[in-house]
């Protein structure tokens, strides 16, 4: 097992308040792990917020229970890891998973391409009504 040096998380309804709360957790994480270089903080925080925003904007509930968002972010000796999950969510539509950068006049659709440019690995898992993005960045 890789040692976890610092860890922060969030769990709550998938809405705008969650985005601000997750961003506050990221800021707190960097306070806990002040040795993480600015460039890594900036890129990783951007990727985590993009993934969380994708859930808030696109995830649809699988049944009556509303979608909940769960974020677990950890600092390890040589990498940053985030698990960003949508609970009670349907499988994402193919066009919500579009990772190519759109035309310059497009006003949306850059999130996934941006995530891919910001992190070392992006993995998507679906299990029992939960969609999980696992983002890692080597530091």
């Amino acid at each position: 097992m890789t040692e976890v040096i610092a860890r922060r998380g969030f769990h709550g309804p998938s809405n705008e308040e969650a985005i601000e709360a997750i961003h506050n957790e990221l800021d707190a994480l960097w306070d806990d792990a002040s040795f993480v270089p600015d460039m890594d903080r900036m890129t990783f925080a951007t990727a985590v917020i993009e993934a969380a925003a994708n859930i808030v904007q696109h995830a649809l509930p699988v049944a009556e229970k509303p979608v909940e968002i769960d974020v677990d972010i950890s600092v390890r000796p040589t990498r940053l890891v985030a698990r960003v999950s949508a609970f009670n969510a349907r499988e994402p539509f193919a066009n919500d998973m579009q990772a190519a950068m759109p035309d310059s006049d497009a006003e949306s659709g850059r999130g996934l391409a941006l995530i891919e440019a910001l992190v070392t690995t992006v993995t998507f898992e679906r299990q029992d009504g939960t969609n999980t993005w696992i983002l890692t960045r080597n530091t």
């Binding site: 951007t46 993009e50 925003a53 006003e107 850059r110």
Partner: peptide
Amino acid sequence: FMDSSGLGA
């Protein structure tokens, strides 16, 4: 901080 939604705006 700006994300892709901010850029889209």
